[in-house]
Nucleic acid binder design. Structure first.
Lengths: 221, 221
DNA sequence: GATCGTCTCCCCCGCCCGGGGGAGGCTCGT
DNA sequence: ACGAGCCTCCCCCGGGCGGGGGAGACGATC
């Protein structure tokens, strides 16, 4: 009995690529495709796939929400393998927190992709980049995305608060606006901003925001 | 005699997707793949493909430089179809200026992708998004990317100089550094920056840079 | 020739930003 | 109990940034 896979990605090209790679395996069968997160639930109900290969960034309903929705509404949910372009994509960690079972870089080699699908299908949680897996191990990962996600964030060397400030910076907010949003003083925000600039090696907030985009920490779209 | 295609993209998944889509056509044959621009020249020499489907953003040598290199060094160059993720990717227009014959969005449907390959193979220049094509027509496009590219830039409402300044802003340069780079006074740069902010509806340079990333005007990677 | 748009440069001015340094309270783990 | 790390807030201060307004030079267009 082969591993059945549902592919969810807004780019037809990526879908075709995944299908080509996976269908070439005798023990893996692609049973369906969806172009956005909103279409996932009914397809999961009908096709009952073992694994869902889910893009994080999608129109209508992104991979995080789609993951939550599937886990919340489906009785025997499939394993969810989050597919992403960026290594440090913050969305991925959110998806893992939401209950995804592993993630996979789009630039991975076909053999790695196949391996990842087999692993999650067997119930193994996997976090692809070696560095993240090491961190997960060091922090005593229990097999759930939750702890690994936190560890991965730690890898960015930013504290949670600093990461939050950077996220708001990357949305164009001023220090005063960030302070208001976080319900703290502007001086506090300034401290965090300074810490972020120092840690990222940025000279000003603009450079920090650029780094955030380039590292995939925040989404361009 | 089928149309032969060389696929150049750093993501194996995209390569597999293109291959799957194109090889499914009886009149199209994928004759090779490359993962970066540097490998293109020898492959083109050896395989002599009719069309090169080339990603813009790649390691080592990007699509623009690779396009230039191919057209400069190969005697009977293939048609070059630039593949991109973002609709307004400035790189695409540069690639067209460099001599590419058309461009294609990754989120295009398989049928559109196939159609694009056939078109450029027949010697037709194509610019995928309808808006750009309309603009190209309005400005009396002669079939070459050059004019269309200029028209598309015009669409952004920024003058060339302003676009140049925004590009440097998005690389983290200060006004003084931009002035030095462009060999003008800092007051001049301030004028351009102010114009950019006004046209983009941005409050400060950070917001302008965010807009540049989100619109695909500049590359995240 | 007149007009328009662009690029260039100048002035004044207010302010947010970022650097440096310091400090109190909190929760950890040892 | 102690230190480490984090979050919070405070001070002073300089400088880059952005707004407003103005202006000369050039080319294209009409």
């Amino acid at each position: 009995m082969p591993v059945t896979v549902l592919i969810v990605d807004d780019e037809p090209l990526v879908r075709a690529g995944l299908r080509a790679v996976l269908d070439a395996q005798p023990d893996i069968e692609v049973v369906g495709e969806a172009a956005d997160g909103a279409a996932v639930i009914p397809l999961v109900r009908r096709l009952r796939p073992d694994v869902v290969a889910m893009d994080v960034r999608m129109p209508l309903l992104d991979g995080i929400e789609a993951t939550r929705a599937v886990l919340r509404t489906v009785a025997e949910p499939p394993k969810i393998l989050v597919v992403t372009t960026f290594e440090n994509d913050e969305y991925v960690y959110e998806a893992l927190r939401a209950g995804a079972d592993g993630f996979l870089l789009k630039r991975a080699r076909p053999a790695e992709i196949v391996h990842a699908v087999r692993l999650v299908a067997e119930g193994e949680s996997l976090l692809f980049p070696a560095s993240v897996r090491q961190l997960a191990a060091r922090y005593g990962d229990d097999g759930q995305g939750n702890r690994a996600a936190r560890a991965a964030l730690e890898r960015a060397r930013l504290t949670e608060r600093e990461a939050e400030v950077l996220r708001l910076m990357a949305r164009g907010l001023s220090n005063a606006e960030i302070a208001s949003r976080l319900v703290v003083g502007t001086e506090t925000v300034k401290s965090h901003v300074s810490a972020v600039l120092a840690k990222l090696g940025a000279r000003d907030r603009t450079q920090a925001v650029i780094a955030a985009f380039e590292s995939g920490f925040v989404a361009p779209g």
